[in-house]
């Protein structure tokens, strides 16, 4: 762990001539905003190198494709969470919303609803819960932490009512979606879930960096009061980020339903923490205003890669995953902190 930290810091300090062109030609130094993401990238690269050196068949298309496919729902969640965290909020409800969306789709299929009704419903239930949270946070001024906590209980409670026991999904559309694989023979494949996750990332990236809404999100995270004084639509944006996060959670639930092909009320317990950890490891500041969607994707990949390495290692017990993720979190928050201190 210690060597990782040093490498990350060293890599962060070193000027990267390749990237400077896009930032500004005058100073040959890297924009500080990119440092945390770059740190994540270095960690990811290091893990790939270590994994590739230690195990055969590690750096293969199959492993990399599985990394994306198995974490597709987490990528979607982390993307939604990034919006919320960028405004300085937090969304604890996403894990429970994933479960609700999964349970609802399983229940609707069980009761003979067609896929073209069920699939939108599974996503929209997340949107609805996100909207409720947004209203609680904005209109009733309940802190995001408490509002999303209440929503978490609500969603989890609805799950128990809808699906007290695990419901298998046998709908042909879902089965087809879960079995379809496009790709080459050497294992580099992509599934519909993986494609949806990638599409979500692209849409989120464009929204955050090339639209007025995206700028407002950053502005609110920087300083809500300044954003309001500038006449930006703070109210609408604040509600909308929770709607986005809820929708992403609903979509994540659908992807999970495709992945697991069953609806179970205990799905995704603690998944919100994975999503938050991925966002933080991806370099987004929890105070809001600074961070990137692509960073969050890298964060998810780092988490997934830890899991993969531990599986490859074989002898390491599963609890090391938690300890390593905790240690990585620690390193990243300290690193971020040092960056902020130096910026001042």
């Amino acid at each position: 762990m210690a060597t990782d930290e040093i490498t990350v810091k060293a890599a962060g300090k070193r000027p990267e001539p390749r990237l400077t062109g896009s930032v500004g030609r005058r100073r040959p130094t890297l924009d500080r905003r990119y440092l945390p993401v770059l740190g994540t990238l270095v960690v990811l690269a290091l893990m790939l190198i270590i994994g590739g050196a230690r195990y055969e068949n590690f750096l293969t298309g199959r492993v990399m494709a599985n990394l994306l496919i198995n974490n597709s729902f987490l990528i979607v969640l982390a993307v939604g969470m990034t919006f919320v965290i960028l405004t300085g909020g937090i969304d604890l409800s996403v894990g429970a919303v994933v479960a609700l969306s999964t349970c609802l789709s399983a229940w609707m299929f069980l009761h003979g609803w067609p896929a073209y009704v069920t699939i939108p419903a599974a996503v929209l239930v997340g949107t609805l819960i996100g909207w409720v949270i947004g209203v609680m946070v904005h209109v009733f001024e309940i802190q995001p932490f408490i509002a999303t906590l209440a929503a978490m209980f609500l969603a989890r409670g609805l799950c128990y009512v809808i699906a007290p026991e695990s419901i298998p999904i046998t709908d042909p559309t879902i089965v087809k979606l879960s079995e379809t694989r496009w790709g080459t023979d050497n294992g580099l494949v992509i599934t519909p879930s993986g494609l949806i996750a990638l599409a979500v990332v692209v849409i989120a990236f464009v929204t955050l960096h090339y639209t007025r809404f995206g700028r407002t999100v950053y502005a609110i995270g920087g300083s809500e009061q300044s954003a309001r004084l500038m006449g930006l639509p703070v109210a609408r944006t604040k509600v909308l980020v929770y709607v986005i996060s809820g929708t992403c959670a609903g979509l994540g639930g659908l992807l999970f339903a495709i992945f697991a092909r069953s609806g179970y009320s205990l799905t995704g317990v603690g998944m919100e923490l994975d999503a938050i950890a991925a966002v933080v490891i991806g370099g987004t500041l929890l105070t809001g205003g600074s961070g990137f969607v692509l960073g969050s994707v890298l964060g998810v990949l780092v988490l997934g890669l830890i899991q993969t390495i531990i599986t490859f290692e074989g002898t390491l017990s599963s609890w090391w995953t938690k300890i390593v993720i905790g240690a990585l979190l620690l390193i990243f928050v300290i690193l971020q902190r040092l960056l902020i201190v130096r910026r001042r």
């Binding site: 923490l273 938050i276 950890a277 609890w319 938690k322 300890i323 240690a327 979190l329 928050v333 300290i334």
Partner: peptide
Amino acid sequence: IQPIIATLVIMTAGRGI
């Protein structure tokens, strides 16, 4: 460090420990 994230470290790693 922000309290929520500082204590998240032990929340994640603690059960592993």
